[in-house]
Amino acid sequence: MGCYHSKKAKSPGYEDPSILSAETPFTVNEVEALHELFKKLSSSIIDDGFIHKEEFQLALFRNRNKRNLFADRVFDLFDLKRNGVIEFGEFVRSLGVFHPNTPTEDKITFAFKLYDLRQTGYIEREELKDMVVALLQESDLVLSDEVIEIIVHKTFSEADAKGDGRIDQEEWKEFVLKNPSLIKNMTLPYLKDITVAFPSFVLNSEVEDSE
């Protein structure tokens, strides 16, 4: 059971579902269902087996040209090899962070990387303000610069426990544990039902789940 592996030609970047399953919270069948989703996303503009930035934007916004600071950050974090595209293995490993069963600590770490725009190891006040401004630009909410400064200042004074003008990973963790709603978007309940959402994986399945 679960021992049959064919050598069917797969797209570049394809990885063995059993390996991906071992490294993530997904079962083999769930990885295969994710492959169905991946095939759909990675062929929406250029059918080459990789998710390009425009395809990612198209899936998120129904608009291939809609740039968004946060979508850019998510794309960059998913692109573990930093080669400008998301490969299947990167897709599965990164989505694993969003699985309901993934430890909160992993989600907190991912969110920190997301918000550490300049990748300095700290979330700085300027970065926080840049993100608030970016969020306002994509929403209908209009706030004066003075109000934005007050929001950023207040948040920073609560999160920057050491008061050194920057939020480190430890401070971020403490802050999120006090405000768990901050990482609500790091959990996708959908991932628990992925085999139901993409049942066609059954037709293409090479491995029978042993779980």
């Binding site: 998120l60 608030v132 929001i151 950023v152 207040k154 948040t155 405000n179 709603s181 901050l182 978007n185």
Partner: peptide, 26 residues
């Protein structure tokens, strides 16, 4: 809710760019 009482990170977390559930929409 008055905007000044908002937590900046809470505000940011509402971004559409961070809402990956859209990836699963058919």
């Amino acid at each position: 809710m008055a905007p000044v009482t908002m937590n900046a990170f809470e505000l940011i977390s509402t971004s559409q760019g961070l809402n990956l559930s859209s990836l699963f929409e058919k």
